[in-house]
Design a protein around this nucleic acid. Structure first.
Lengths: 222, 222, 222, 222
DNA sequence: GATGAATGAGTCTTCATTCAT
DNA sequence: CATGAATGAAGACTCATTCAT
């Protein structure tokens, strides 16, 4: 059930070699990893800004001050870079979601917790979320990223179950559709990445509180 | 104020100059126009399905049963096709929005009207909206599509003004941020295009009503 | 049982399209085919001279006086070119082999006929045979060329059966291994392509007769 | 007259200058040499299996459990590896050939001896022969390997002279072409490397005897 | 209106090789 | 001796676009 990216080893991550001996001096592994992560971050920025397809491998390399071919010392392919970006994001958010669920609070508190977590990723994972929003359609077509869909399904179940529980407990209106409601909440949060500017009038938590207000009680005066 | 695409004349849209006469009943112009619109529709489907960049001119041509080069008899470029798709959509929705505003109802009714219109476009303009959602980021980078941003601003003004009026009239809560609220509503509607399937459990109007319920009164029981 | 290349349609041979309408004006199909065949011939020369891998797509294009990208108007890939070369050769030689077998002569005459046919292809199919000799090892690794191995097996059966028949009839020595003998004959013929120069001292038929002499009666005086 | 590879000194073979002393018992030179030879053997296997061009320097390094860059501590270049492989083979076979010639037996015995030697190399030098068969065409194009052609010429002379002597002595038929006959014998032997499997039904010497039988007396019954 | 051939710029990727550490 | 990062040149292939017919 874990969000496993196809590809999350170390450089060139050909995890399962075919028989040859292999030594791995753990020595400066940390530095190598740093370099790699730096590159991933640069790439994420570019993917977010211009889109996955419109970002060329050369763009990324230039941003890093190396030649495009040199990138392939660190990654198998352009895909494996975006994979790393998305896998990291999914891993983190899912474990955060699970923590909230596991706290075992009442559905209203739980939903509020989930919403706060979602908004909370907006800033640290801005690039990943943007990629997910803009390039999902393209990426989902590749079997490599099937695991994303799977993770999504798991997440959907968490939310929907919580909403249903809330309805059973009389906390949420019985006349709303749980699945529909989940989707709308989900999309409303993620899509905010398009206009949300860290350091703007409202920070991510402000956004979350605003949204919770509207979501729970509506925009009408009562 | 007008939604003018750079490029919305007749075939090859150069002959007629820019900003010239719009309709000419000249002979088989109607047929040509029909053919053209058919091609636009095919292209829209493909753009929606695979994304603008991932859709090749050949894809479109093949879908139409012609060769890629032949498309250039009808259009200047791939861009001009997507332009036509988006311009058409914007033109229609904006005029619909204006009609609602012009009815001069109270803000709550007006907002409900706007929401219903937005959801109402989901089905007839599914492809255009999908393109807008997925490829906006890419498209907005091109000066050609600057007019889209302009139209968006105009639309934003309509909504925000209405929300503010609602607050002034004591219909809407004073503690919500009009702009933020607008954005969330807007995004929630459009993003639904990703999962909305015409002919599914809920039709577009059902969706609209569901959303209005939640938006006005929240998901809480009271 | 026919030697079918994966890929032997017309330009771009995406034989099985996915649903779109398709018209094929048979018009100048012949000319198109000519051009294509010309390109195949040029490529064959280069493949023979420098090897498949060492020949770049640019080499071929330059030879044809066009740009490398333009080749892809005619062929799907470099592989599909070599496919066409080899498939053509296999098709021809196998049908020739079958004709000889079908004549139903005595095994000695039949073997002589097969040998003559094999040597007879040396000149008209020099390039294809050279490619087959030099790049077989590389090519056979690709599933696309699995059909070559299959064809080879069929051919082997023809020869081996004939040799065995000859032994049964007391025409060939009983103490030779049919399979081994076939292989040695086969290799001796094809490998000659490496040094055989059309227009040299001996033509292909001279070679064949020389070889038949040695093969049937040995180099010893008796 | 000697088979001198451009490049057969010790590691990096530059230090020792060209044509300098061959063996030096200096300290751990033996170990270094062992390591080197091990690497050459690994490379030979790969070259044989996948072809020279298709084998990457990384492939070799991986097989040896080191990184590709590290190979350059032992060898100047990929070419120098294959050089070492082929040079070793040529050196050995030529000296074996000379021994047979020097025995001064009658031509028939001599030819038989040469054939037996040739088949005898099939097993111990399988990889080298395979490379020679498959990549000759590519390799011969490089001046570095000109010495191979030279060696070949020398070998040809040995065989052709012996065949001619056999004809003069009335041992071999007068109506066969010595050069042609040599080539066919040569190719038949080497090309066997493609299908010969050590440990199969027939070992290399069995093959040799089978071939001698056919070569001397033909496949006909008499 | 459409074809078919070609362009030309660009894409991702590969790989032998170098070199500081 | 080996690593790990990088180079730089090249490779196959793609694709929007043009244009003569």
């Amino acid at each position: 059930m874990t969000t496993t990216s196809t590809n999350s080893g170390r450089p060139k991550n050909r995890a399962t070699g075919e028989g040859g001996a292999r030594r791995r001096g753990k020595g400066s592994a940390a530095l190598a990893s740093e370099r790699r992560e730096h590159l991933v971050k640069l790439a994420a920025e570019l993917f977010a800004e211009k889109g996955f397809q419109a970002t060329t491998v050369r763009n990324i390399a230039e941003e890093a001050g190396i030649l495009s071919g040199s990138l392939y010392h660190h990654f198998d392919s352009k895909e494996s870079i975006v994979d790393e970006i998305l896998a990291g994001f999914f891993q983190e958010i899912m474990s955060a979601y699970r923590s909230v669920i596991d706290e075992g609070n009442d559905p209203r508190t739980t939903i509020a917790g989930l919403v706060r977590i979602a908004f909370g990723t907006l800033e640290p994972h801005r690039a990943a979320i943007t990629v997910m929003q803009n390039d999902w359609n393209y990426l989902k077509g590749m079997e490599r990223f099937a695991y994303l869909t799977k993770s999504e399904d798991e997440v959907e179940k968490m939310w929907v179950d919580t909403i249903k529980a809330g309805q059973r407990d009389g906390l949420f209106r019985a006349d709303i559709d749980p699945k529909l409601t989940y989707r709308m909440i989900r999309d409303t949060v993620w899509v905010a990445v398009r206009w949300f500017k860290p350091g703007g009038r409202l920070n991510a938590q402000g956004l979350a509180e605003h949204y919770l207000k509207v979501m729970f009680d509506g925009i009408n005066t009562h």
